[in-house]
Amino acid sequence: MKKLVTPLFAAALFALSSSLHAQVIVIANPGVKATEVTKADIKEVFTGNATTLKDGSRVVPILLNEGTANEEFLKVYIGKSDSAYRATWRSLVFSGSAMMPKTLDGDAAVVAFVMAHSGAIGYIDKESPHAGVKVLSVK
C-alpha cells in the first residue's frame, strides 16, 4: 500500500506544481506583433539582455511590485528571488547599461499600463481581468 501511495503523492504534488506554474501569464501591448515567445526570450527581455523579440518587436518590461504572481514569474522564468532580481537590475543601472524597469502595484495597474504603452510587456495572475492586452503564448 505504501508503495502505491508514494508515487500517487508525487503525482499529486507534480500536478499541483504544474497548476501553480500556469497561474501567471505574460501580457503585451496589442501593438506587439509576436503572439508566441519562448521562455528564453522572456528571460532575455526581463533581465535586460534584449529589448526586441525575435520577430523584431521592440518591448519594454514592466514588473509587478510583489505578490504571488511576481514570485511565480521570477521562479519560473528568471530563477532568482525578488531581492536578487532587483539587485541584478540595479547592477545594470550602475554599470551604465540599462535603466530600472517600471514597477507597478497590482495586476490591474500592469494591465492598464501595458494596454496604454506601445511595446510594454508584463505578467499578471491568470485569473486577473486582462481585456485590451495580448496574452503571449510561452513555449
Binding site: 541584478t88 547592477s91 550602475f94 554599470s95 551604465g96
Partner: peptide, 22 residues
Amino acid sequence: VRFGKVKTPSSLYNTQQDIDPS
C-alpha cells in the same frame, strides 16, 4: 552608440568593477 565618459568594455567585469553591490 554611446558618447561621453563611457565605461571601457575590456575584460569580463571591467564595467562592473566599481559596483560593489554587483
